[in-house]
Computed example of a mutant assay.
Amino acid sequence: MSVRKALPFNQFPREFKRAIKRLETPKRGRRGYSETTIQSTIQGVGQYLAAVQLAGLGLELSHEGLSAFIDNLDARALRSSTRLTYLTAVQAIAKEVQYPAEKRRLILEDCEIYRSEMKAEVPTKVRKLAANPITLRDIAKAAVKWRGKAQEAINPNKRRTYFQRSAFLALMSMMPLRLSDANALEIGTHLQRQGNKWFLRIESSKSQFRHNGPLHHSLTPYLDDLLLYGENGLCQMRYVQRMGTRLFGNHMHEPLSSRTLAAGFKVAPGHSPHIVRTLVHDAMAPYGTYGSEVARILCGQKSVQIAKVYEIHAERFRAQQAQEILAEIQKGLKVAMLARADQWNTINH
């Protein structure tokens, strides 16, 4: 019999449910949490409750329960970042349920241990990029490739799938939205077609960052494909007919799952859609602080700290650049010293 790893929310103790509700509707002046963060917190607390239940303890915060939870996390094949996420969720709830401050500090100490271990680990995306290096250009090329396949496809289901795949690849290469945000795009609401241009108006479900403006003209044929799917017709007429439906949907205009959209993306470059934000930061790394700021805006990231998580090669690039500058300075100093030595020898002779 399989052991349940997380207790579902409907089985949470009332005190914990109320704490979650307070996170969803914080008092004035308190930090608000995104839906993604709330769900992550529920998952982490569910992991804690399942662990204490397995240990035969009460469904409450206690020193024994936390010890059992730490042992449970350490016994499982989890990355330190995952352990940290779960424990941070418990820390957030501990504060909400008025768990004693001195005991909360013990949770923070364990969080710091996991954080230190996490920093020593090589991130998964670093290893995957090393094994299969790609750039934004590769994703754009994949979009062109799959659009060509869609135009050649005879089977209507394959044609629809390929057109959606190419459009998603093209969109992500130019506008690195979060997967859930891209999947929620609705024609006429978030995406509006005016003339021969498409306009994007959407607020990130995680950061609440607002994208509001025209999309690059190179995306127009790909988005138009999702109206016509290779058939003859007027795009604007199809656009009016499709208003209120999801951009990515089946033949009944029912929304696709995010998992389906992600799987289609991964077929092309061999990476999940999440890699795009890292590629954007990498592409802008040569432009220093200005490039980092542009990348952060493109990715819809409000927090500078969160944006830095997506930088892999940026720090290395800056270090190399600094070394090159130092080398040039040293070279200049050496030339100046040799010139002075020659001048001194000339004077003496």
Rank of each mutant, 00 (worst) to 15 (best):
G56M: 15
L57N: 13
L57Y: 11
G58Q: 15
L59T: 06
L59W: 05
E60S: 13
L61R: 01
S62T: 00
H63G: 11
E64G: 09
E64C: 08
G65K: 09
L66W: 03
L66K: 07
S67M: 08
A68R: 07
I70M: 06
D71C: 09
N72M: 10
L73Q: 14
A75I: 08
R76V: 12
A77P: 01
L78N: 15
L84T: 05
L87M: 05
L87W: 05
T88I: 04
T88C: 13
A89N: 05
A89Q: 06
A89I: 00
V90F: 14
V90Y: 12
Q91I: 00
Q91N: 15
A92V: 09
I93Q: 10
I93L: 15
A94I: 00
A94V: 01
E96G: 08
E96L: 12
Q98L: 08
Y99I: 02
P100A: 09
P100Q: 04
P100S: 07
P100R: 01
A101Q: 11
E102Q: 14
K103G: 04
R104Q: 11
R105F: 02
L106N: 05
I107C: 15
I107R: 11
L108S: 15
L108G: 13
D110S: 14
D110T: 14
C111G: 08
R115D: 04
E117M: 12
M118V: 00
M118K: 13
M118S: 14
A120W: 04
E121L: 08
E121Q: 12
E121T: 14
V122N: 03
V122S: 05
T124R: 15
T124M: 09
V126F: 14
V126K: 13
R127E: 10
K128N: 07
L129K: 09
A130R: 15
A130N: 10
N132S: 13
N132C: 11
P133T: 09
I134M: 14
T135D: 14
L136E: 07
D138G: 10
D138S: 10
I139D: 13
A142I: 03
A142S: 15
A143Q: 01
V144M: 02
R147L: 05
R147P: 06
G148K: 10
G148F: 02
Q151A: 13
E152W: 04
E152V: 09
I154A: 13
N155T: 11
N155C: 15
P156R: 12
K158V: 06
K158L: 10
K158T: 11
R159Y: 02
R159E: 08
R160S: 06
T161C: 07
Q164M: 04
Q164D: 07
Q164T: 08
R165H: 08
R165N: 12
S166M: 00
S166G: 06
F168Y: 04
A170T: 03
S173K: 05
M175H: 08
M175Y: 08
M175V: 15
L177A: 00
L177Q: 02
L177F: 01
L179N: 10
S180K: 05
D181A: 05
N183L: 12
N183P: 09
A184M: 03
L185M: 04
E186Y: 02
E186S: 06
